[in-house]
Design a protein around this nucleic acid. Structure first.
Lengths: 209, 209
DNA sequence: TAGATTGTTAATCGATTAACAATC
DNA sequence: TAGATTGTTAATCGATTAACAATC
């Protein structure tokens, strides 16, 4: 469903409006800000219940809370990071898991130089100790930030630890079925390519084919 | 068009197959690998011309080249990075612009400690010198990796430099119209949220509502 | 009550799938 | 020629938009 892909965006905009002190918003206004149609906004929200009030629009705080719960953000998910290289560290330092309500239990790597180091309060452990470290507190989500060549092994360890979802930054096969573990692939290069396509299009439009 | 969003994925898969030495591929096979239908693959490719050969399938190398050119990757785009903080540096070190055929001209920041430093052959300059540095060689694409609070200024500078496309990693308003500059927003947190939604869904399915 | 804006149904549009004739 | 697989048209499906009655 296309609505699902829009939910995080709604959530972001409602967050901003909440911070800006907006109490009430009409489907029209929200649609304008988000480049959607008012119809679509109403249709979307009505997939999950009726949150609006005829004549007045939507209560920003209530809607925000509702969408938060629909996405599942009211639960505090426990996360482990597989691979404390550039990408893993960059996420740890920069992404703001805590701020977003995620609890990062640990990071794992196979480089002994990193063992025991701590980034943003998260300790990097030997990947061999992953099972041990996660024996008592089971993580929900695994972040895969290992080199492409180590994807399959890292993924197998995540499965063993009992992770139910993988946020995958590597390319290549994970070797787990989508029925047992939910996988979300991040390919930022795709987004750069689609930018290139649109740039080419823009230039063709300006200077002719 | 939905095809456009699939083009980078086709390109990635064809890249892999090229590297693996696959010469010819049928729509059926490609569809299976990519989790699409054969019909869809054929439909997609026929948007841009007929590249297949009845009875034999598609020539991987030719198709790869064709899609490369459709996306616009056969041109060497010139890039500047706005903001050499964590995200900017991480991209410079890790993303592989060169390998992907992009030419990074320079990075800019307002932190004097970074001036003159070089990452992967790219020098970090004072943002005040941006116009000067780009006077002779005009960049095509600007990568926005500044803090949210500095988005608008950074964006204005990119516009002044003559950039035609912005790969935006910040949140918040850019203050440029989409008609003059093509913008591609990267929100990796959206992808984590949609993972959360699907995780919740999976758990509901397993343990009941 | 009048104005505003929702919830919801019906109409439109676009994208995906199925089917098959064309052709290598 | 027979088998395979494309290119392409038609049928189906889903998502978006339009319209309006319900209601705050």
């Amino acid at each position: 469903m296309a609505v699902i892909r829009r939910l995080p965006r709604y959530y972001r905009y409602l967050n901003e409006m909440l911070a800006a002190g907006v109490m009430q918003i009409s489907s029209r206004e929200l649609a304008d800000r988000m480049d959607l149609t008012a119809s679509q906004v109403r249709q979307d929200f009505n997939c999950f219940g009726d949150f609006g009030q005829q004549g007045c629009g939507y209560d920003v705080a209530a809607l925000h809370k509702e969408i938060k719960s629909i996405i599942g953000l009211d639960q505090e998910y426990k996360i482990v990071i597989m691979g404390a290289g550039r990408m893993g560290c960059s996420l740890l330092e920069h992404f703001g898991f805590e701020r977003r309500g995620f609890n990062v239990l640990a990071a794992f790597d196979n480089n002994p130089e990193l063992f025991g180091k701590s980034i943003n309060g998260v300790t990097i452990h030997d990947v061999k100790k992953a099972e041990e470290v996660c024996a008592t507190v089971r993580p929900d989500i695994g972040v895969l930030t290992v080199p492409a060549s180590e994807t399959k092994e890292a993924c197998a360890i995540l499965k063993k630890i009992g992770v139910k979802a993988i946020w995958n930054f590597t390319k290549g096969e994970l070797g787990v079925s989508e029925e047992e573990i939910v996988v979300e692939n991040v390919h930022i290069s795709d987004s750069l390519m689609s930018l290139c396509y649109r740039l080419t299009e823009l230039e063709d439009a300006l200077y002719g084919d």
